Simulated scan of single mutants.
Amino acid sequence: MAGEPQADCLFCKIVAGEIPATIVRESETTVAFRDINPQAPTHVLVIPKVHHPDAASLVAAEPQIAADMLREAGQVALDEKLAGSGYRIVFNTGAGAGQTVFHAHAHVLGGRGLNWPPG
């Protein structure tokens, strides 16, 4: 069921403390941790503590938690001193867009030039 922890979900296991992660921020509704395969000098994931497969399903079911994620992503950028040089917040949705863990999450990327389009 959406919102409930999923036994086979890597990010649900991080939220539960079953899998270690380098946590940089935690709020009542979110956890932010360093990506284990960084694509920029700063690459932090911000996830909701509740399970939803992607950002669209999260915002449809729990818009306040989606807003919490964006607030926390902005705070990560401030904490990591990215606000002055710029940063990107990315939500990948679906395997074709590069989503590999089907638990909503935002990537906070910065610390290098981030030309558009990416890739």
Results as ranks from 00 to 15, higher is better:
G17L: 11
G17K: 09
G17D: 08
I19V: 13
I19S: 12
P20F: 05
A21R: 00
T22C: 10
I23Y: 04
V24Q: 01
R25L: 11
R25F: 03
E26S: 14
S27P: 02
S27D: 07
E28Q: 13
E28P: 05
E28M: 13
T29H: 14
T29Q: 15
T29D: 09
T30L: 05
V31T: 12
V31S: 04
A32Y: 01
F33R: 00
R34A: 11
R34H: 11
D35Y: 04
N37C: 13
N37T: 15
N37L: 10
P38S: 09
P38E: 09
A40M: 08
A40C: 12
P41M: 12
P41G: 12
T42Y: 04
T42R: 08
T42L: 08
H43L: 06
H43G: 08
V44T: 06
V46I: 07
P48F: 02
P48H: 05
P48D: 07
P48N: 07
P48K: 02
K49T: 06
V50T: 15
V50G: 15
V50I: 15
V50D: 11
V50L: 12
V50M: 14
H52N: 11
H52M: 09
H52L: 13
P53N: 12
P53E: 14
D54A: 11
D54C: 12
A56G: 13
A56P: 08
S57Y: 01
S57I: 03
S57G: 06
S57P: 03
V59E: 04
A60M: 10
A60E: 14
A60D: 12
A61F: 01
E62D: 15
E62M: 13
P63C: 06
Q64G: 12
A66L: 10
A67T: 13
A67F: 11
D68H: 13
M69G: 01
M69K: 02
L70T: 11
L70I: 14
E72H: 02
E72V: 14
A73D: 01
G74S: 11
Q75M: 12
A77I: 04
A77M: 06
D79V: 07
D79N: 13
D79A: 15
E80T: 08
K81R: 14
L82W: 04
A83I: 14
A83G: 15
A83S: 15
